[in-house]
Amino acid sequence: MTVVSTPQPALPVRDKGAGRALSPMLTRLAEERATGVLVREHGVLHLAEGRVVHAESPLAPGLDVLLTAHGTLAAAAWQQAAARTAGPLHAAELLLRSGVLPTGALELCHLDAVYDAGYFALAPSSTPGRFRYDSAPRLGPLPSVPVVALERETLRRRLLLHRLWPDPAADTAPLIRADPATGRTPADPAGPAGPVTPGRRAARVAPATPVTPRQRAVLDRVDGMRTAADIARNLGRQAFHTLVDVRRLTAAGQIAPAPAAPAPPPPPPYQVTTDPDIALLKRLRDALEAL
């Protein structure tokens, strides 16, 4: 007997010859060991002496979500720490000092959050980034990440997602369930959503690959409304980890990006009235005369 499944592409190893930087501005800031906050379209990097100490993105769950979603930390404990400090990084440092969380757990969660939000903060953007020199970020007790390491990891993650499934549409769109046998979605019974190339068609009709428990959790939350970022927040899971499962489930034909909402119907053409409303005109005349 044979069991055929789509082989998983290998995790990429960075190309050491590739010297391209994701953001020339960020490279310059790292070289001058700048301290401040870099605001980009999809996220924010806090730099201290040229190292990334904290990152935030609306597309990635923050440290608070990661820590409280599964009861590692009580939500009230986070809120107390956040109320007494000037931001999530300082709240995390306060938690570290107070010893309510094991050091290793907090360091691990913090690094996860930095690389996760950093991935989105460094995503291609349509607007230039802005850097605000600010003495507030500083190298604290939690681990920081060299800019070059974050850039390299971000490039490697892009490559990993691309190898799993080359179309990024499912990363940001609301997701819908699809029939893995045909790749057909309820909204588009005629065929798979999106453009079909021979490769895509082949991938969609490949024998169903088993869904892992972690993928099952993602699949169970696909409801036609939630995006990958929503599912990550709902699961208290890193957004990039969720994207990996979303791309794999898309490749397996289990889910698809929801088709874009149809354009609103064009406004009705201006109607030329041949029969004016006599009553309205009379009221208007009376009103004008009364002035």
Binding site: L11, V13, E153, R156, L160, Q238, F240, V244
Partner: peptide
């Protein structure tokens, strides 16, 4: 999931912790 080494110490087979971590 990502193949990222969050911390390394000592040697790695082939001398490269990043490749070792991914594999």
């Amino acid at each position: 999931t990502s193949g990222l080494a969050l911390g390394t110490v000592g040697e790695a087979p082939g001398g490269d912790h990043e490749t070792t971590a991914a594999e």
